[in-house]
Simulated assay, not measured.
Amino acid sequence: MNTIVGTYECKVDSKGRLMIPAPLKKQLHAGLEDGFVLKRSVFQPCLELYPMTEWNKMMQKINKLNRFVKKNNDFIRRFTAGVKIVEIDAAGRLLISKDLVAFAGIDKEIVLSSAVNIVEIWDKDKYEKSIDDSVVDFADLAEEVMGNLNDDDDGIS
């Protein structure tokens, strides 16, 4: 799967259905046949939409964990809690189950935000708070996370 690009605002209806914006649907086109996995985020009050190929790669990594280590079992259980296989229907809609809507605190207005190879689904207000520079100084975060990368061959400067 290629990198997914973009941030899109849309609405979710009372049944938990959202219309995938056309530019995002076009990027996800390769995965439409295989379906997607929708899950709770580990670190944020949002949901993560994995194209099935990306989910399978993640499961290959997780499957390497030793299941005779309690911490690993606890992690797997929590990581996969609430996981749902979902499809984008012929009308371009995605159905979010009520338990996942409740987890993410999704109301009516949502944000679909690309996160490299997955899409995060946020309640709009929670998303705005998560990117608020008054909470986390993005310049400091960028320096800490990206500042030690060797940029000789990757073009990042």
Rank of each mutant, 00 (worst) to 15 (best):
Thr7Ala: 14
Leu65Met: 12
Ile121Ala: 04
Gly31Tyr: 08
Leu95Phe: 02
Glu54Cys: 03
Asp125Gln: 15
Glu144Asn: 10
Gln27Ala: 14
Lys129Leu: 11
Ile96Thr: 01
Ser130Asp: 11
Asp107Tyr: 05
Lys126Pro: 05
Lys124Phe: 10
Lys39Pro: 07
Val86Tyr: 00
Asp133Arg: 09
Val69Ile: 13
Asp74Tyr: 02
Met52His: 00
Gly35Leu: 08
Ile131His: 06
Lys98Arg: 10
Lys61Thr: 13
Trp122Ser: 05
Leu149Asp: 07
Phe103Ile: 05
Leu32Phe: 05
Asp153Arg: 03
Asp13Pro: 04
Thr7Leu: 07
Lys84Tyr: 08
Ser113Asp: 07
Arg77Ala: 15
Ser14Pro: 01
Phe75Ala: 04
Leu149Val: 12
Lys11Ile: 05
Asn73Gln: 15
Gln44Thr: 12
Asp152Cys: 00
Met146Lys: 04
Cys46Pro: 07
Lys126Val: 14
Glu143Val: 02
Ala142Gly: 10
Lys57Leu: 09
Cys46Trp: 05
Asp152Tyr: 03
Thr7Lys: 11
Lys108Thr: 14
Lys15Asn: 12
Gln27Ile: 14
Pro21Gln: 02
Glu144Leu: 02
Gly155Ile: 11
Asn73Thr: 14
Asp34Arg: 14
Ile106Cys: 03
Val145Lys: 05
Val119Trp: 07
Leu95Pro: 02
Asn148Lys: 12
Leu149Asn: 06
Asn63Ser: 15
Val111Gln: 01
Asp132Thr: 13
Asp137Cys: 09
Leu28Lys: 03
